[in-house]
Write a protein that binds this DNA or RNA. Sequence first.
DNA 1: CGACTTGTCTACCAACCGGTAGAGAAGGCA
DNA 2: TGCCTTCTCTACCGGTTGGTAGACAAGTCG
Lengths: 206, 206
Amino acid sequence: MPRGDGTARRGTIVEEAIRQIGRDGYRGASLDHIANAVGVRKQTVLYYFPNKDALLEACLAAAGERLMREIAAALEGKETYWDRAEAVIHAVFSLASEWPEFPMFVREAGRLGPDAFDRFAGGLDPLRRRAIDFLQAGMDQGEIRKQDPALLLFTLYTAVVGSLTEASVLNAVVGPGKSRQSLRRREREVIAFVRAALQPAERVSD
Amino acid sequence: MPRGDGTARRGTIVEEAIRQIGRDGYRGASLDHIANAVGVRKQTVLYYFPNKDALLEACLAAAGERLMREIAAALEGKETYWDRAEAVIHAVFSLASEWPEFPMFVREAGRLGPDAFDRFAGGLDPLRRRAIDFLQAGMDQGEIRKQDPALLLFTLYTAVVGSLTEASVLNAVVGPGKSRQSLRRREREVIAFVRAALQPAERVSD
DNA sequence: CGACTTGTCTACCAACCGGTAGAGAAGGCA
DNA sequence: TGCCTTCTCTACCGGTTGGTAGACAAGTCG
């Protein structure tokens, strides 16, 4: 029972909660388990967060902020359309490799309804706008296939998050042997897929 | 308390369970709620299924079988590469529009781990093999961009299921106004996206 | 010193969960 | 008629969950 630093403990609780909510879902992640994993009693968790919902909210905000920092850093210095798109994908995959529960948590945030997801994505809104403008500009210049930029962004999101969260499906589709050590391969696959999908039509044989 | 037909009741219980498991997750869907929605007591549910896990298993099998029927029917008579791919996507979107919780249930099956997902996808295995062979043949003939066919199939899965299950994200990305009545638009978007991603490279300006 | 704040704890609770035990109603069939 | 199977029910149980009440220890500061 050291008198540990309050804000630090708060942070570790949020981190552990993100892990467990990502793994077991919001309902499946119990305050007791989170507390025990941190090495503390449930009531200590309830000291920092008045109830489970408040803890969730803190997790959503923290996750959103973390992702924003990661993407913003990755975009730095990247100029061309494709460099920027690839940098974002790489940043997300990189974050996922060091924090596997993170994408699962994001998916759970979406499952919990629009309000919860907005609390996560609220801080990402500037990036969202920039992405849409960026896609629109690319289309205007003929460097990206013409389509609804917002819907395209959504489809890109689903492809990236899906390939990071659907491990069981990957297992079933490509076989248990091949799915091992495949995060890199999946990243390359998603990047190639997205690159192909972004390219403007070239009057193909079809 | 009519002496209703046993097998019919079994079926309605499974249907309702798929709905609620899709909406609230396996843990969040309680036997009590499922039973009440069917108009029966929890113990009646436990009469047909010895425990919750057995109910889940029945749901997984039923969902897999339903999806297989749907896809097999859609494939009938379709010959060209593109017709077949588009037919499958359309069949899935069509099933999702009449049974919105279905894709959510599939996603939950994946979240529950490889074993659960295999019990769902087991019946779909022949289709999976055919799809991979079909993609491989398309690549050999130069009609589809060369890549790992299994990984491609996985990426296609994530794009389709993601765009059907991430409603909250859609809402956040394209705005609440535009996301309404958009299932058709999303289907068109996914189809265009997939078509572009499948096309072989054409030595573009790049 | 003594009041106050901060942090962690024990003890407890009502609600809900999955599951057991077993009664009882209705039809089929000898 | 009487037995047996099928189906649905009430009553209950132990475990877990989110949350409340409040004791208690350790600085901090007047």
